[in-house]
């Protein structure tokens, strides 16, 4: 007798298959960045969909391809997801050509998230540069929506020029329920605020590290200069968190390109503490 094969009992959901979503709203943030608000078409999926601050999604423009974006919206505001897109390549260019009402595909949520549960009762200090504000905006709004769980919520946000600042429509809220410090590398005629890079502004403001978690995200050059500033202020490596960016295709640890040493940014990250980053090879 030929013996029977072991029976397969589970049906596997296909992690490569995106959910269809409609673009509900497009916000022009800057000359090269737009924020998209998308709503899942399937009602049951939309109702049950949830995610955590720090997670990311892979967006499909059918016929062009997929690209990775952080979830910039907060799970405390339900019914939609938001992602900010800087026009740099083919998928981002195609997204910039799209209009409200068009259909995209979304695979989400992917990756780990900020350990915000462990941070209850602590002060939070956000330091973001340019489009690096996108992943932090999710956590910032999440914490502001759970205001009583946290101490002071301070944000330092910088961009090249005033025109490069994203999320201006939320600045009032960030400065009301928390404290917001803005800076630009180069001001213009209407700019009365601080001028200078984020690391230098951090040094000037000199926040105290006691009972505080620092979250920082921005271009590699900003990260390089801001980490020593945090260290000078007395922040330890496990008080500093960031999200890393790598080219991704699958988002589920298979396609092999987003590794740093034996860690995959897509499944072991994108959120890492500076202590964890120091254990990784310097290749990101």
């Amino acid at each position: 007798m030929i013996n029977t094969q072991p029976e397969r009992t589970t049906t596997i959901a296909n992690p490569y298959e995106p959910q269809l979503a409609v673009i509900e709203k497009i916000i022009d943030e800057t000359w090269d960045t737009k924020t998209f608000r998308a709503v899942f078409l399937d009602e049951a999926y939309r109702e049950s969909f949830t995610y955590e601050p720090g997670q990311f999604q892979i967006v499909s423009v059918f016929g062009v391809g997929e690209a990775t974006f952080c979830l910039t919206s907060t799970p405390t505001r339900k019914g939609f997801v938001e992602f900010s897109v800087k026009r740099v390549g083919s998928v981002t260019a195609a997204l910039h050509e799209m209009y409200e009402g068009q259909i995209i595909g979304i695979r989400a949520p992917l990756g780990n998230h900020f350990p915000y549960e462990e941070w209850k009762g602590k002060n939070l200090l956000f330091a973001g540069g340019g489009i690096g504000m996108a992943p932090m905006r999710s956590l910032l709004n999440f914490c502001l929506d759970n205001r009583s769980d946290y101490g002071e919520i301070t944000t330092i946000y910088g961009a090249r020029t005033p025109g490069d600042l994203c999320y201006k429509y939320e600045f009032d809220d960030w400065n009301t329920r928390g404290k917001l410090y803005l800076t630009v590398d180069q001001g213009d005629d209407d700019w009365n605020g601080h001028v200078g890079h984020v690391p230098g502004y951090l040094r000037e403001l000199a926040p105290k590290p006691d009972n505080t978690i620092a979250i920082t995200c921005g271009p590699p050059i900003m990260i390089k200069y801001i980490l020593p500033e945090f260290a000078n202020l007395g922040f330890t490596d496990d008080q500093i968190y960031t999200t890393l960016e790598m080219k991704m295709k699958c988002g589920i640890g298979k396609c092999g390109r987003c590794n740093i040493g034996s860690k995959f940014v897509c499944i072991d990250g994108p959120v890492f503490s500076n202590a964890q980053i120091k254990d990784l090879p310097p290749e990101f």
Partner: peptide, 30 residues
């Protein structure tokens, strides 16, 4: 592997094909 879209008449085929860490654009970001 790599994942790409190809437009075939009225439909889009999303395919995967071999890729290798030896190619420069394997990790090149947008």
């Amino acid at each position: 592997f790599d994942i790409q879209d190809e437009v075939c008449g009225t439909c889009v085929e999303r395919y995967r094909c071999r890729d290798t860490c030896q190619f420069e654009d394997f990790t090149l970001m947008g």
